[in-house]
Design a protein around this nucleic acid. Sequence first.
DNA 1: GCAACATTTAGATAATTGTCTAATTATCTT
DNA 2: AAGATAATTAGACAATTATCTAAATGTTGC
Lengths: 100, 100
Amino acid sequence: MKQQEVFRAMADPTRRAILKRLQGGALSAGEIGALFDMTAASLSHHFAVLKKADLVRTERRGRYIVYSLNNSVFEDLARMVFDLFPLKENPPRGSSGGKR
Amino acid sequence: MKQQEVFRAMADPTRRAILKRLQGGALSAGEIGALFDMTAASLSHHFAVLKKADLVRTERRGRYIVYSLNNSVFEDLARMVFDLFPLKENPPRGSSGGKR
DNA sequence: GCAACATTTAGATAATTGTCTAATTATCTT
DNA sequence: AAGATAATTAGACAATTATCTAAATGTTGC
């Protein structure tokens, strides 16, 4: 699991925006491009980072390359986050380990 | 909420390691320093990033400055992650948007 | 108040990252 | 196969980031 890749990918606002757009369903590189004020080349670079982190998947559809969220990695990401923090809200110093 | 700061802070492996160490309880800057092969100055920089993201809090205790996790931001982070991904595994194209 | 200690801040440098333009690859249509 | 379209790759450059050394700040104990 590429923890580093995932966190790195999420660190850029453009990439997070791309992920957010993809929530609405798969989009081609060009369609995404139309939504951002940036060259196709720059976006392509962002796609590469997202792909390396396994956050998106691609499928060629004729002339288009279609991007979609890879939801399975979402679980991993959630796990990472939970793993990085203790499980309790704000342990008032007396409560011994609660549930999960 | 400083979404950008939080994600940026999490993007560095040293910082994630610091967070992980703090799970075991609060530690002074020096104690943390003993765990990493890096100058105190460099670590201090990482502390600053973590603080700016509100992921840790500090308290001066005499000569020491003690760092601890700020668990409340954990919730925010979880929310961000959940917000960034749809809730369903792999919406089969026909299902109209579910709850929340 | 001075010396020792713990940590941060300042300033410099090397590595990484985000963006661009130009060139390349892949696909479709005729 | 040639031309048009969609996207990626290559190469360059500016901005950001991580790290270091040296200096400064804040705290304790004599």
